[in-house]
Design a binder for these strands. Structure first.
Lengths: 201, 201
DNA sequence: CCAAAAACAATCCGGCTGGCATGTAAAGTC
DNA sequence: GACTTTACATGCCAGCCGGATTGTTTTTGG
């Protein structure tokens, strides 16, 4: 007659708590921004005490960098799983770029930009950001390769991908402060035709 | 025998002080980032007291929004004055985009991005950001028109400009966290050829 | 079943932040 | 040259932030 969730193993408890904390961190970053995110608020949202947080992530910086990895892992998964559902044929590129846009402009990416900008003036954060970002870059390139097919020149493919990602990040920035959504859609459509021409499809 | 700077008019004193404060604010944003920028530090850098700051900008938010306008006005001037020195002929487009890149990735723009991101979760800041940003957009479009010449279709010109600006902002973000500078240069070069084709030059 | 360890809770504390109240000096007014 | 207004300085304070400490519960290993 004990409560149904008895005898959770230590590992289960830990992982559950860590996940709660990291998710709360991300939600804080999205809703409050980096500057107003406090460990207090994170714990409140996670429904945990400061003690629990300190047990798993000693310092705030550690919590942030862990949240970052958590975030990028999710982003990567999101991108890769979406690859499977891409249609073949000429709409493939179109859909692919649209998917990339959604991935890089969703809530996950919003939080990422917050950390990104914060990392500029925070050496510790930057150190942990760079390798994770690079890994995500590789993943995205892999993703792009599946979109374009094997016929496209590798160097050219990478160039177009990087242009795309950087454009999308700029557009994401525009979206963050409430620029015109229809305009972004139009720009993205225009960009798709440019890419199609650029990689010769 | 009095000190050489006697009898400054009130207006002169005010303007001088305000400028000191706004410049200090921007330098803080660039070097410390939004989260770590405190009014104390701003006053320290300006060589003024908290009292002086409060006299001219009652609240911190007011100081920030004013810094924003100060910033964008400068950016606009920077862009417009640079237009005059553009070479004619085919290098004109090339030089123009390069100039835009320098303008949008310099220290001024770094501070702007800090405020930009902060504005996402700060309604007051966002309200003051949007109109100023729009004005800067108009200025930049004007700039682009001078680069391209009158022969280019207006709608198409605007599309290419917006793509350029958003790409550049994405690249600026990349630069902020120390991405590869040579790679950015290569991407920008690639982009220039795409634009040239895009507006039919 | 019991001791040790891990997970989690509650509370305290030094430091700093931004706003405010109060005081002084310089500039403008008549 | 007194008087007002504006510009600037100094010091104080309530609040909050993150880190450390100490105490309680749950799991684990023997």
């Amino acid at each position: 007659m004990a409560s149904p969730v008895r005898h959770r193993t230590q590992a289960e408890r830990s992982e559950r708590t860590r996940e709660l904390l990291l998710d709360a961190t991300i939600s804080c970053l999205v809703e409050l921004g980096y500057a107003r995110t406090t460990v207090h608020e994170i714990c409140r949202r996670a429904g945990l005490s400061r003690g629990a947080q300190q047990h798993h992530f000693t310092t705030k910086a550690e919590l942030m960098t862990s949240a970052l990895e958590h975030l990028f892992r999710r982003l990567g998964e999101e991108i890769m799983t979406a690859t499977a559902n891409l249609p073949p044929g000429p709409e493939r590129l179109d859909e692919g770029i649209g998917l990339l846009w959604r991935a890089y402009s969703g809530t996950l990416s919003t939080a990422a930009v917050e950390l990104w900008v914060a990392a500029r003036t925070d050496a510790e954060l930057r150190r942990s950001l760079l390798p994770v970002d690079r890994e995500l870059g590789h993943l995205t390139l892999e993703f792009y390769r599946r979109i374009a097919g094997p016929s496209v020149d590798e160097a050219r493919l990478q160039t177009m991908l990087l242009l795309t990602v950087n454009l999308i990040r700029g557009l994401a920035l525009d979206a963050m402060i409430g620029g015109d959504s229809a305009r972004r859609t139009a720009l993205l459509a225009e960009w798709k035709t440019l890419v199609a021409a650029g990689i010769g499809m």
